[in-house]
């Protein structure tokens, strides 16, 4: 019944997660420079590792994985999947280059000229990487809007996926920030939950637009509490993920000044992001 299953769901989730994490990491790098060295290194590292994992999921889902390179060898410019493949591969290369430019792993000793070039182009790679991160986040939604299912017919789906990408990526980023502890004392600690709440509000607005622009039949299925997918959308994504994970808990953190709920907030945000992709992919194919 389901042509696209868990592998595609995970690919959509990981693509967005990586994109959001990269954007937040590059942003912090621009703001703080060497003060946040370890945070930026870890953020850049997980960005390329996660997008590489997502690409692996996508390739594994192919009926003929050994032909995956056909997307590069025989591009079809009018196909969203064709240019989307280019976007995610370029994004992965940029994320990897950004990580290498910050850490110098391998290239520093073995490929000195490449290392020098990466260091010199670090800022440009960061800006371009941020641009491709946004494109990756939106593309996963664009991909679905071209298919025939009414659940995917909302023009706001790319915006919702992009907003979710930024929120989930930022949630993982906030965990990295907490683990490295570099922002404490740098005057940024209180801003971390504030930006999370802002992203949560943006995602809530995007979710509203997505639902409003759905065909009536799809909207009814999505908002139905008697439908298991509808329940997951309402309870896991909207209530637990966006409202609690991205808005309420970060606001509480801002008020109390602590980070006791940070991990719970990040967990709920990531769970909500995954639930969103799950519902969109599976419910989309069943109506």
């Amino acid at each position: 019944m389901f042509v696209w299953g868990w592998l595609v769901t995970l690919y959509l989730f990981l693509g967005g997660l990586s994109a959001g994490l990269f954007a937040a990491t590059a942003g912090l790098d621009f703001v703080g420079g060497k003060r946040f060295k370890r945070t930026v290194e870890w953020g850049a590292y997980w960005s390329w590792v996660i997008i590489a994992l997502g690409i692996c999921m996508l390739i594994l889902d192919l009926g003929r994985p050994e032909r995956a390179f056909n997307t590069m060898l025989h591009p079809h410019p009018v196909s969203p999947m064709s240019w989307g493949s280019m976007v995610i591969v370029i994004f992965m290369v940029l994320a990897l280059a950004y990580w290498l430019a910050h850490t110098g792993v391998i290239v520093k000793r073995l490929l000195k000229p490449l290392w020098n070039l990466l260091v010199r182009l670090k800022t440009i790679i960061g800006i371009l990487g941020g641009m491709f991160a946004f494109m990756t986040g939106a593309y996963t939604g664009i991909l679905l809007t071209y298919a025939r299912h009414s659940m995917w017919a909302s023009a706001a789906l790319p915006a919702l996926f992009l907003a979710s990408a930024l929120a989930t990526g930022y949630a993982l980023f906030s965990v990295i920030v907490e683990r490295t502890g570099e922002v404490h004392g740098a005057g940024l600690a209180e801003k971390i939950p504030m930006y999370e709440a802002v992203l949560g509000v943006l995602e809530l607005a995007a979710a509203g637009a997505y639902v409003a622009l759905l065909p009536a039949e799809a909207r009814a299925a999505l908002l139905s509490a008697s439908n298991p997918y509808g329940l997951i959308f309402l309870l896991v994504f909207l209530l637990a993920g966006v409202i609690f994970g991205e808005i309420v808990l970060p606001l509480l953190e801002m008020k109390t000044g602590g980070s006791a709920t940070l991990f719970l907030s990040a967990f709920l945000t990531l769970l909500g992001g995954l639930a969103l992709r799950y519902v969109v992919v599976f419910l989309g194919q069943s109506i």
Binding site: L62, G63, R67, T71, S79, M81, Y146, A147, Q285
Partner: peptide, 8 residues
């Protein structure tokens, strides 16, 4: 490549 985009 068996991506099933045509199917969808």
């Amino acid at each position: 490549i068996g991506c099933a985009y045509c199917v969808e």
